[in-house]
Simulated assay, not measured.
Amino acid sequence: MKTRKFGLAAAVSVTAALGTVVPSGPAAGAQSALRIYRGTATVVVDVYDYCGGPLWGEHRFVGTSRYKAAAKFVTGPRKSAAGRVERNPFYWEFYVGDIGALGSFQFGSAHVVTASARDLGGNVRDPKLLLGYWVTSRSGTSWSGKLVDSHRAEGATFNHFYGEKTIVPCRDLGTSRFLYAVNAGATVSGRVSSGSAAFTIRGSTYGDNYRFRITFNG
């Protein structure tokens, strides 16, 4: 994947996102089979840091990176656990570029993790926990929605951007690759059918170091 320089970015801590779930039940038109859509993502990333102002510390625009990368969109049956199901017409994941490489993204609608088999009161409970990140809806082939929550204290992020942070803030002493969580409020809008998918995701990362737009056709 070819990228332009992302510029300087302040270091931030990245943890988890916990979305909204609803009691499980039959879903009209729910998808029952795994589908994979491969295509190209066109990406625009605006870069910011906190090195503005006479004494630094002010949020400022640094520059814009534009690039294209191979991308993969995967859909399947909705995730469920402990009697609850994600609030999406289908489970989905979306990957841009080589995950872990600078400029790559990964997104996911929900995730099932294993927690304690007892709650804080010592009562027995199902150890499986459903973490819902996105809430989306579909009408015909039109599909849209939002990343609804980002509880970083959960320590289970899945929606990520691989950017940079400066080794020493506001000093030109080099950068290192860094994993940024995507903020709640990111949106997706487009269309998904049995044979193709085309949509745009817009959002920002925790700490507001990056604001991005990704357009996918597959």
Rank of each mutant, 00 (worst) to 15 (best):
5 K>Q: 09
5 K>C: 09
14 V>W: 02
16 A>I: 03
20 T>D: 07
21 V>D: 01
21 V>I: 15
23 P>K: 11
24 S>Q: 13
24 S>V: 07
29 G>A: 03
30 A>T: 09
38 R>V: 12
41 A>F: 02
43 V>M: 06
43 V>R: 01
44 V>C: 02
46 D>A: 09
47 V>W: 00
58 E>W: 11
71 A>W: 04
74 V>E: 15
75 T>I: 15
75 T>D: 08
77 P>Y: 03
77 P>F: 09
79 K>W: 10
82 A>F: 09
85 V>I: 15
89 P>E: 09
91 Y>D: 13
91 Y>E: 12
93 E>M: 15
96 V>N: 02
100 G>T: 07
105 F>C: 05
105 F>D: 00
110 A>V: 08
112 V>A: 04
112 V>R: 07
115 A>M: 10
117 A>L: 05
117 A>C: 07
121 G>W: 14
122 G>T: 07
125 R>E: 05
125 R>F: 02
128 K>G: 01
136 T>H: 01
139 S>Q: 11
139 S>T: 12
142 S>W: 04
146 K>H: 04
148 V>H: 00
148 V>A: 05
151 H>F: 06
155 G>L: 11
161 F>D: 00
162 Y>L: 06
164 E>T: 14
164 E>A: 13
165 K>H: 11
174 G>N: 13
175 T>N: 12
176 S>E: 12
180 Y>K: 10
181 A>K: 02
186 A>F: 04
186 A>C: 03
187 T>H: 04
190 G>K: 11
192 V>Q: 00
195 G>E: 13
196 S>Q: 08
199 F>P: 08
203 G>W: 03
205 T>F: 02
205 T>C: 06
216 F>K: 10
217 N>A: 15
217 N>H: 13
